[in-house]
Amino acid sequence: MITAIYLAFLAILGLAAGFVGSITGLGGGVVLIPALTLLLGMPIEYAAGASLISTIATSSGAASAYVKDRLANIRIGMSLEIATTLGAIVGSLAAALIYTHNLEQVIFILFGLVLLSSTYPTFRELRKAKRSRMNRDWSTDFFNLHGKYYDSATKRYVSYSGYRWLFGEGVMLVAGVISGLLGIGSGALKVIGMDWGMKLPIKVTTSTSNFMIGVTAAAGSAIYWVMGYIQPLLLAPILVGILAGSYLGSKMLPEMKGRHVRGFFLVVLVLLGIEMILRGVGIA
């Protein structure tokens, strides 16, 4: 039987997941999956189901604020979603094949290694005082990858442009396939693709990733629903917590300095990479 304390614990977990997810653009899985599996002993597929739906809540809850603040770039987000949704479809179709051959462990390990190795360029960006501007390429104007936002932390308007759309789209395709295969939002690759690949400002990157993951997670959710990996009663208190957490996060991100956002993302990235490798070797 479910006790009030248990429900309150799930709500607090949701609060933490919504907060971390909305600031880093990673959705809810980073916090939820290890907490639900390790602390509560929930089987991984149910934890992944809860995390997918929570990711939609984090995304939609925070994105309304980010879109209103002009921090999330709708055009860039939409144009990259082509690859993430397509990738998610391919990934979910391939999932059955992967699981029957027990290859999912290999994918977890590979994904973990990719995340850990991408901490290096993220770390290097963190140490740079100023980011070198690139020459705009064909995609910058063709896809209208321009934007402008008011940075509350520095009290200045920031104009920016995105580059290497095709490269970004490639990263998003991989992110989509992985999210379809493993049932995770894979926001980490989205952030890396936009930050490192397309050279967008970090706050635009995490808020646009946050805007996008709702669509990727929604695409993956139907399968989890049909397979019965979604437990409504456990999800309900988590979602209530998520709403509060993502609201807090969406109020905080605009006030944060870009360096701090990237630093925070870097820490979570390391933890996520380790978590994926541990799952790959079958510990978590």
Binding site: V215, A218, A222
Partner: peptide, 12 residues
């Protein structure tokens, strides 16, 4: 939960 899943679709 269904409304939540439908929200991103509605947004698109």
């Amino acid at each position: 939960i269904v409304v939540l899943i439908a929200t991103p679709v509605f947004r698109v």
